[in-house]
């Protein structure tokens, strides 16, 4: 019994962390229409940043600054924001394909650099990080439960923050830009700056998720920032319904459950020679989930309540010359 509960806490912790990343993506994609092809880079920047800033010194490794945990976490988020700001600054004014390609590229570059630079942990990853309050709470179930509560609080805070944000004038502006850039521009707002703000904010949230993930395992390595994580996070958002924060969280739990269940089932029931291909089978499945949703249910399982803005109505008039 305690085994099951302990597993459920473990599952819910990871799913909640991923939910935070999916919420960050939802701000970029669902609310602003920005395509992020390299979620892992921002997730990873948060993870590496947190561990390097908050860890203890290791031989031949950068960092080990031993900052207080929350400061390290904030530092990790800043790292993610910084990467996003540079990429965004260069691409956000261009055709949307450039952002897609550049973000995909930054993820590849991030993994490559982390894998090859020994000062950043190299292929072995970053070690020497002490989980906060470990001495007080120990290493067992109590700690995991407490950490889950901590993650849950941050998930709820992120959720409330984003809900506030999209109800605010800034949020309305985001939707206006997503629907009709020219109209938004005519309101005297600079769409590029608004989109850049949203892109950086979304990436900072992904950085938070990355920081929590690394804290949970007290470890991060290039194996944790593979492109597959980007696909998983997308699938979660697409299944949940882009634009809708509640859907995003539900989609995350659903896809993460399906992913872990399929991995478990394959390892348990599939013949040994098939098990080598577990990853391939799961990747095909997630590919079909993405394509299938786009073909048959592009609004997701839990779609956004439709808000028709005035700018969409005006669109037809603008195009008549």
């Amino acid at each position: 019994m305690i085994g099951i509960i302990s597993y459920l806490v473990f599952f819910a912790t990871v799913a909640s962390i991923l939910s935070i990343a999916v919420l960050g993506l939802n701000l970029q994609w669902g609310n602003t229409g920005l395509f992020n092809g390299g979620v892992v880079a921002f997730f990873g920047a948060g993870a590496y940043g947190t561990l390097i800033l908050g860890g203890t010194p290791q031989a031949g490794q950068l960092g080990g600054f031993g900052l207080p945990y929350l400061l390290a976490l904030l530092g990790g988020m800043t790292c993610a924001g910084l990467v996003a700001w540079i990429v965004g600054l260069l691409t956000i004014r261009l055709r949307h394909d450039y952002l897609a390609i550049a973000t995909f590229g930054v993820a590849v570059a991030f993994e490559t650099v982390m894998r090859n630079t020994d000062a950043l942990g190299g292929a072995q990853g970053i070690r020497g990080f002490e989980r906060p309050l470990r001495e007080t709470l120990g290493n067992g179930f109590t700690y995991n439960l407490a950490f889950f509560v901590f993650v849950l609080i941050l998930l709820i805070a992120t959720y409330l923050f984003l809900e506030r944000l999209i109800q605010s004038p800034f949020g309305r502006l985001l939707r206006a830009i997503r629907e009709d850039e020219t109209a938004a521009q005519s309101l005297g707002k600079s769409p590029s700056r608004v989109r850049l703000t949203s892109f950086v904010a979304g990436s900072v949230i992904m950085g938070l998720a990355g920081g929590l993930y690394a804290t949970f395992y007290a470890f991060i390595s290039p194996q944790d920032v593979l492109p597959i994580l980007t696909f998983q996070i997308w699938a979660m958002l697409i299944v949940g319904g882009a634009g809708n924060n509640k859907g995003a969280v539900m989609g995350t739990f659903l896809i993460w459950a399906a992913w872990t269940a399929s991995g478990w089932a394959l390892s348990r029931f599939a013949p040994l020679e098939v098990q080598l291909y577990t990853g391939s089978i799961q990747f095909v499945l997630i590919g079909f989930v993405i394509v299938g949703m786009l073909l048959w249910r592009p609004q997701g399982l839990f779609p956004e309540k439709l808000v028709v803005s005035q700018s969409a109505k005006n669109k037809s008039r603008l195009s008549n010359t």
Binding site: F35, D97, F231, S280, I281, F283, V284, V291, L294, P298
Partner: peptide, 21 residues
């Protein structure tokens, strides 16, 4: 238009891993 990019990632995953299988 933007969904096409997602779709192309999905297609890439499917093709790549089916070839692997």
């Amino acid at each position: 238009e933007l969904s096409m990019v997602f779709a192309s990632f999905g297609v890439a995953m499917i093709i790549r891993n089916i070839l692997g299988l």
